[in-house]
Design a protein around this nucleic acid. Sequence first.
DNA 1: GACTCGTGGCA
DNA 2: TTGCCAAGAGT
Length: 311
Amino acid sequence: MNQLIYSGGVQQIHDKINNWYLENARDLPWRRPGATGWEVMVSEFMLQQTPVVRVLPVWEEWMRRWPRPQDLAAEPLSEALKAWGRLGYPRRAQRLHAAAVEITTEYNGQVPHSEEQLRALPGVGDYTAAAIACFAFHEPTVVVDTNIRRVHARLFGGMALPEQSPRASEFARARQVQPDDSATANLWNISVMELGALVCTARSPKCEQCPVFDDCAWIKAGQPAPHYTPKGQAWKGTDRQVRGAIMAILREHEEPVAEQSFLADLAHQSHAKYVALSMLESPLEQRERALAGLLNDGLAVNESGGIRLPS
DNA sequence: GACTCGTGGCA
DNA sequence: TTGCCAAGAGT
C-alpha cells in the first residue's frame, strides 16, 4: 500500500474508480442532485444492513408521507414502525423517529451538516454520520462501510476479506488513500462504495469488470482465500425470530392485543417465512422472553387492554 | 471485543 | 435446500 501511495499510483486509482462510477453508478433517488439532507439521512438508516432493492419502495413511501423531519416528528412512533414494514431491525425506525424529533427541536428542522452533530443523533454511528455529511452536504469525510473496507482490503491489502471487526489501522489507511482535493475525495467515497456493491462483492467478485484489476494487491497475490471463515448468523429458533413475529402482529392491530390471545396468535400465525413456533424447545418461555425484550426496548407497550405499538 | 438486533434473496 | 450476506449501531 505504502509503495502505491508514495509512487503516486494512488492518484491513477482515484481516476480509474471515479470514472468507473460516473459510467456505471446506479440511478438511486437519494443520489439525485437536489436530494435533501433528510432524504439522504432516511436512506442511510434504511440501508443499514439492508439491500437497496428492499429499501427503494419503503423510502419512496416515507418521503411521500414525511418529506421533512418535522413531518415524521409530528407522528406517533407507532406510525413509523408500521411504515417501516418488513425492512427489519425496527429499532432503526425508532431511532430515526427520535432523531427527527431532535432535529425538529434542537436544529429547527434542519439536518445538521457537521459530522460531529450528526454523530450525536440517535441511531447515527461513525459510518452514517460520515455518509450523510459526505453525500448530502459534500463534506470530504472519511467514509468507511463494509463495501469500502472490502475494496481496501483487496486493492491495498492483498486480502480476500477485511478483518471481522474494524481496526483503527483500517481507518488510518482509508484516510491515507483519500484524495487531497475535496470534491475528488467526495466522489471517491461513493465510487469505492459502489464498486464494492457492484463489482468487488463479497462472494463472487466480478474481477473481469474491475477498473483497477491491474492495480489490485489481492489479484497480484494470486487471490488468496480468506484467513478465517465467517460464522453465520443464527436465525431459526432465536429470540430475534420471535421478536420479528411479534412486531408483525402488532403492526396489523390498531387496538391493544390481549397477551393471552396475542401469544396464541403468535403460535398460529401462518406467515410462510416463520418456522412454526411449536418447533422451538421452550416456545412459551421464549415468546415471553422476546416480548419482554421488546417492551424493554420501547418497541412495544403493555397497557391494561393488552400489547400495542408505542405511541 | 463480543453480542444482539430482522428480513429476504441468492449461490 | 441451507448458509451467507446486505450503505451498522448500541451495549
